[in-house]
Amino acid sequence: MSLSVPRGLLRPRDVIDHIHDITPDFLAERGLRGLLLDLDNTLIPYGSYEERADVMRWAADLRRADTRLYLLSNATGKRARFWVDKLGFEGVGMAGKPNPRAFHRALASLDLPARQVGMVGDQLFTDVLGGNLAGMYTVLVRPLAVNALPHTRAARKLERAVLKRYGHDWRP
């Protein structure tokens, strides 16, 4: 099976195990001043409404270091609003990733150029593809939970095949 998307657009700049690997030093080394963050399976396990004190502290630490944060999620608007209120920074649900328009709107909200913003997410075909199309620095994070949605399971199989071509043995 051949993908019509050029391979480079599916290649993340960094592959990490957890968002806690992103520190002010990590960002400074890459020239990043802001982050667009996916919600489900990146910051919070899919479908969970349980507060994560570690994620709240991580986000607060980045904001204290003058990192601009924005939640860019395909989750429902209601779910995204719940987490935006908890996390204390702006964002939207039903973003329509990987459509670059969603990324450009988020970049405008951060008031930063794409080259200074990282897109952090757990999916190649939404987060990495959209971030790369928008000219951002892309970071793929290992999913926090196994998602039982059929389309996500199918996407995970394709992701593993793509990442294997880039030398990553990726198992959620």
Rank of each mutant, 00 (worst) to 15 (best):
R64N: 13
R64E: 15
T67Q: 11
T67D: 08
R68W: 01
R68K: 14
Y70D: 03
Y70G: 02
L71W: 00
L72I: 09
L72F: 12
L72A: 10
S73Q: 11
A75I: 02
T76H: 04
T76F: 00
K78E: 15
K78M: 09
A80T: 11
A80K: 08
A80D: 11
R81M: 14
F82I: 02
F82E: 10
V84L: 02
D85N: 14
D85M: 01
K86T: 14
K86N: 06
L87P: 03
G88V: 11
G88Y: 07
F89E: 12
E90H: 10
E90G: 13
V92I: 15
G93H: 05
M94Q: 15
G96S: 11
K97M: 12
K97D: 12
P98K: 09
P98Y: 04
P100F: 02
R101D: 15
A102R: 04
A102S: 15
F103A: 01
H104G: 00
R105Y: 13
R105S: 10
A106V: 03
A106Q: 04
L107C: 01
A108G: 13
A108Y: 05
S109N: 14
D111S: 14
L112A: 09
P113T: 01
R115L: 04
Q116F: 11
Q116M: 12
Q116K: 14
Q116E: 15
V117I: 13
V117D: 05
V117M: 09
V117H: 09
G118F: 04
M119Q: 08
M119G: 00
V120Y: 13
V120E: 04
V120Q: 09
G121C: 07
G121I: 02
D122F: 00
Q123N: 10
F125Q: 05
T126N: 09
D127P: 08
D127Y: 01
V128Q: 05
L129T: 03
L129D: 06
G131P: 02
A134P: 05
G135K: 00
G135T: 04
T138L: 05
L140N: 08
L140R: 06
V141A: 06
R142L: 07
P143R: 07
